[in-house]
Computed example of a mutant assay.
Amino acid sequence: MAYEVDKTEEEWKRELNPFEYHVLREAGTEPPFTGEYTDTKTTGVYQCRACGAELFRSETKFESHCGWPSFYDPADSSAVELLEDRSHGMVRTEVRCARCGSHLGHVFRGEGYPTPTDERYCINSVSLRLVPEEG
């Protein structure tokens, strides 16, 4: 798929540190309960760490106790791309940034969380950058 932000892998490697590159460009996963934003309650906007696109807002972040930041809805439905992921012997739905194609995490449905969508966007902290709301 062609993305608005289109860079070579060498360009991504120059711009991202090795761990960011592994998660964002190679669909890696950070270990649970280690991410910068797992327990953050700061009000603001979560952007893609690779390209700066607005992905999630703090109002949709909730405590799922799964080890990664969880959101029940993206900031805009066109901000993320959802793809079938059959890796690791299971079928999941991968979440990518729609602007640059970077891997963010996975979305799970029907788990019974008391949220408006009954969805859990389980997102790697290293895929995000929080821009705190001013004021």
Rank of each mutant, 00 (worst) to 15 (best):
H65A: 14
S87R: 08
D39T: 07
V131C: 00
L16Y: 02
E133V: 04
L83V: 14
M1A: 12
Y72A: 05
A27C: 05
A98Y: 08
W12Q: 04
N17D: 15
V107S: 07
P74Q: 12
T38S: 07
F108E: 10
K13N: 04
P18L: 01
P74F: 09
E133A: 15
R49G: 11
F108I: 03
A50G: 08
K41Q: 10
Y113G: 02
G110T: 08
L16G: 01
T29H: 02
G28T: 02
A79T: 09
F56Q: 02
P116W: 04
P74M: 07
S78F: 14
P116G: 01
T115I: 02
C66Q: 13
C97V: 08
I123M: 05
G52W: 15
P18R: 04
I123S: 03
L104V: 11
K41I: 03
E4G: 00
G52T: 11
T38P: 01
G101W: 00
T34M: 09
G44D: 07
S77N: 12
N124E: 11
V80H: 02
E94I: 00
P32C: 04
N17E: 09
V95R: 08
C122S: 05
C51Y: 11
R25K: 12
G44L: 07
P69E: 00
E26R: 14
K13D: 03
K41A: 04
L104S: 05
Y37F: 15
A98P: 09
T29S: 11
G110H: 01
D76N: 07
A98K: 08
A98W: 14
C48S: 02
M1S: 15
T42N: 04
E26Q: 15
L16F: 04
T8W: 01
L82M: 06
V91G: 12
S70W: 13
T93R: 07
T115D: 03
E94P: 03
D6Y: 07
Y113N: 07
D6H: 08
E20G: 01
Y46Q: 00
A53H: 13
E4R: 14
T29P: 04
W12R: 03
M90P: 09
S64D: 12
S64V: 04
E36M: 09
T29L: 02
D73H: 13
E63W: 02
Q47Y: 03
E4P: 00
Y37K: 11
R86M: 01
E119N: 10
G35D: 07
H106F: 02
T60F: 00
E134V: 00
G35K: 09
S102V: 01
E111K: 07
R14C: 03
E54D: 15
V126D: 06
E84A: 08
G89N: 07
K13H: 05
Y3E: 12
V23Q: 04
H65F: 15
R57Q: 14
H65Y: 14
S64T: 06
R49I: 01
R120V: 03
N17K: 15
L128N: 08
E94Y: 11
Y37T: 05
E10W: 01
E36S: 10
A75D: 09
A75E: 13
P114G: 06
Y72S: 11
G67P: 12
F56D: 10
R129Y: 02
C100H: 08
S127H: 11
D76T: 10
R49H: 13
S58E: 14
I123V: 14
L55W: 12
F19D: 15
Y113F: 14
A75L: 06
S64L: 12
C97A: 05
T115M: 05
T38G: 00
T43L: 06
G135I: 06
